[in-house]
Design a protein around this nucleic acid. Sequence first.
DNA 1: TTTAGCACTCTCTTCTCTAGAGTGCTAAAC
DNA 2: GTTTAGCACTCTAGAGAAGAGAGTGCTAAA
Lengths: 353, 353
Amino acid sequence: MDLSDRKKKILRAVVENYINTAEPVGSKTIAKETDMGLSSATIRNEMAELTRLGILEQPHTSAGRVPSPLGYRIYVNELMREYRLSVEEAQEINNALRQRIAQLDEIISEVGNVLSELTNYPAYALSKPAHKQTIVRFDFIYVDANTVIVVAMLDNNTVKSKLMYFPTGIDEPLLKKLSNVFNSTFTGLTEDEIDSALISAAERGANDPNGIVSAIAGFAINILSEITPAKAYLSGTSHILDHPEYRDVDKAKELLSYLSNDEELLKLPEPAREDGMRIIIGPENLAEQLRESSVIVASYDLGNEMHGLLGVVGPTRMDYAKIAARLEYITKGLKRIFSGGNKHPPHIEEPSK
Amino acid sequence: MDLSDRKKKILRAVVENYINTAEPVGSKTIAKETDMGLSSATIRNEMAELTRLGILEQPHTSAGRVPSPLGYRIYVNELMREYRLSVEEAQEINNALRQRIAQLDEIISEVGNVLSELTNYPAYALSKPAHKQTIVRFDFIYVDANTVIVVAMLDNNTVKSKLMYFPTGIDEPLLKKLSNVFNSTFTGLTEDEIDSALISAAERGANDPNGIVSAIAGFAINILSEITPAKAYLSGTSHILDHPEYRDVDKAKELLSYLSNDEELLKLPEPAREDGMRIIIGPENLAEQLRESSVIVASYDLGNEMHGLLGVVGPTRMDYAKIAARLEYITKGLKRIFSGGNKHPPHIEEPSK
DNA sequence: TTTAGCACTCTCTTCTCTAGAGTGCTAAAC
DNA sequence: GTTTAGCACTCTAGAGAAGAGAGTGCTAAA
């Protein structure tokens, strides 16, 4: 799309004005609030042209103009000023992250909360399934004649354990045998590779008619399948109702129900590049319920197999520049905290678009 | 409150009609839809009386009547018919529970989802902190010269483990010593009882200048403090917008924000008796934001230190009888599944109020 | 190429009016 | 004494009308 510089300036003015006011923007407003030294009539002509090109839209004949999805697209791709976080904003994000990151368990949902609070839009956080993991070693701790603690260490250095009860009884020699069998047969295998053939072979190898091997193998499979399953966390849904677009309760309800569905969230698109960000505007969304909303999504990566997506949902008239800047600051900050090893959020840096 | 039988009948009719229609109820409607053989005029007189007693209310002079909070209270305490779950409804609950209960981890939040879906109101689930737990045994598994797996078994038979890295190095004899120190000093203690005096004493006992003891003790404290912390899960918030009471976006927003705050949820009242149910009507709520809503709450108990509250939030005009019946069926069902050991939901039973 | 002027269009708000529902009171009927 | 019919009265919700305001597109002049 090749527009004259003047058209671009006008488009930008329309988009930014509309983002702030949520009201259709008239030619007079543009003339007054930008310093192009042009009268409203000239701007009117340009806006008429932009409307013909499908970049602006008119809600009705005598209303001001509103950006079309195409208009937003052009704005986002070419015109959006890089939003520079102020020192205060960056500080605020730093504090929010620092305070919330206590237990790693819930970090992702917490980051979603932070994101939502900082943007005033609903936010979601997805954790992606890690690459197929394997168990690298098994240990067995004897507790009493019927009880054993099974400890499994994974290839990412996490450890899982479980108390298991065997009515048929066990003793130290049996444990030793089990340890040998499991460490030789079941290590280095992904979930899929542990199948019933393998289990019954191991049962024969350990001379175990009592199902002990298969119970432990079941535990192993459980661990491998439960580790970082794709999960969705949604935060700040009530922010939806802050925005005039959703004053219509039915629309709000539609979006809210949609977002509350984890499976739908997991289907949302991802950024093309690992470190990129993606903005999906209105009708570019595949889901019917998002056709009037926009999504900004970035991926995060905490190392150690923890990675996923972090997104913000809002009306098409959302402050793309600001939200994108904050989102990027957060994802970068997370990465720094977790891979760098130092426990402090990053210092202020220049965000890119 | 001593009312004539006729007044009670009329009150019940008003409440139930209002619950269904969300419109103020007129004397004519009552006359028509109940078989008391009375004319609207008579009923009008009775309703005027009930209004004088503060049991009914008039939105404005010439509108029908609406129950006051006191009216709901009387209805709930004395007039509410026991709602009998139909076979289909019970079946539906059974299925919902059965399908969802896979990993115990998320069972409580899942039950919240089920509850919300079955009632069409937002529902919350709280897990209460368990009684102070203690570690009953420690085990140490040698991995390599710098790495140990620490395994701790709690008094409720759950097992926690962690891979720990010690740059100063460790060997088998040291592990043995550690095992002795921890199993003699730190077992049977609650989180509070493990204090720094104890830790430094143990450090001296183990002759450990490298902070290994204190690192492991930190892990122990972590476990004890993290186990079933009070948690809140909220489901089905979008159902709020189904009800005409919350068509006003500002009201919906107020309630939604309130419910989204975990700390507030944790402060909500509990049933007086362990197996009881509690209904809090409108202004009986302490929180300002709930003054126009009602809460029905019951406690659940899955044995094994897992217990907490399950609640439903809706407009004061909510179908108390139906919701209470479903809530009770669910809590009883949970108990049966988990304590009875059989993995199937209960059969249909008569719910009590 | 830009601007001023002007008629035109459409929405939003305000006001008025009416239909309808429901009430409370009075007097008659049971 | 209780119940009912009748009726005037009150209040709301909704429909229609009117006017203000904002913004447009077109034309003609600068």
